[in-house]
Amino acid sequence: MLRLRFILPVMALGLAAGTAMAQMGPSSVWQGIYTPDQAARGDGVYQQACGACHGAALGGTGEAPPLIGGEFISHWDTMTVGDLYDRVRTTMPQNNPQSLTREQYADVLAYLLKANGFPEGAVPLDRRSEVLATIGITAEKPASGATGQ
């Protein structure tokens, strides 16, 4: 009985925290999940660390795929920003994976989101995978009012 008195409140607290976290943050890339300053920083990091392979204009070169346009968006459609972040963070730059800080990877991701037409917001893109995993990527903009704004 003592164990049950301890477990039930802990479970309730965990559920409440998970619900609160889901309600607090955006759940779509269409909700403005990065700032203009963050995207600008990301542009600089991208040009230095990524542009040689993916092209200065994000169009891809050789075997490096484009990071802008329909092919890129359709590849990530229905996945999460966390999926994209973890892929970039753990595999790029190809010659030196995980060589940037988490903040720099988030900045680069903000730049990619901006370049692909997703709206800016007032709060910088988070650097934590578990937070980014709650934000969905959808190719098509939801109908007005469906973005939670």
Rank of each mutant, 00 (worst) to 15 (best):
A52S: 12
G25S: 07
Q104M: 08
S129W: 11
S27H: 08
L58W: 03
V10Q: 00
A17W: 14
M79Q: 11
G18H: 05
T147N: 12
A52F: 09
E71R: 14
A106L: 09
P93A: 10
A52Y: 09
I135K: 00
Y105P: 04
S28L: 13
M11W: 14
G51S: 09
A106D: 05
L67C: 03
H75C: 07
Q38L: 07
T80F: 04
L4I: 12
S144K: 12
Q104I: 05
L2V: 14
R89T: 08
V123T: 15
M79Y: 08
A56L: 15
P66H: 03
G60S: 04
Y105Q: 06
L58N: 03
A22R: 14
H75E: 14
L100Y: 06
E103M: 13
F118E: 01
A17D: 06
V10W: 01
G59K: 10
M21A: 11
Q98S: 13
R102N: 15
A122L: 12
Q104Y: 02
G145L: 12
V45H: 01
T78Y: 06
I68M: 08
T78M: 11
T91I: 12
M1Q: 10
H75V: 13
L112Q: 02
G44E: 11
R102S: 15
A143Q: 15
A49K: 07
D126R: 09
T80Q: 05
V123I: 15
L113W: 07
L2K: 14
E103R: 11
Q47M: 11
S129K: 13
A12C: 13
L100G: 03
A139N: 07
P26H: 04
G145F: 10
R128Y: 14
K114V: 00
Q47G: 02
G145Q: 12
Q38G: 01
Q149P: 15
G69Y: 00
A52E: 14
M1W: 11
I137D: 00
Y111N: 06
T147D: 13
E140P: 03
R89N: 07
G82H: 07
G136K: 09
T147C: 09
E120N: 11
T78G: 04
K141E: 14
G32K: 08
D37E: 14
G25C: 03
L112C: 04
P26T: 07
L58G: 01
T134K: 12
Q98I: 12
V10K: 00
T61G: 06
A40G: 03
T61D: 10
T35H: 05
G59C: 05
T80P: 03
M24D: 08
Q38S: 02
G44C: 02
R127W: 05
A49H: 04
L4F: 11
R128K: 15
F72A: 03
L100D: 03
T147A: 13
S27Y: 06
W30G: 01
A20I: 10
T19I: 15
P26D: 07
G117K: 02
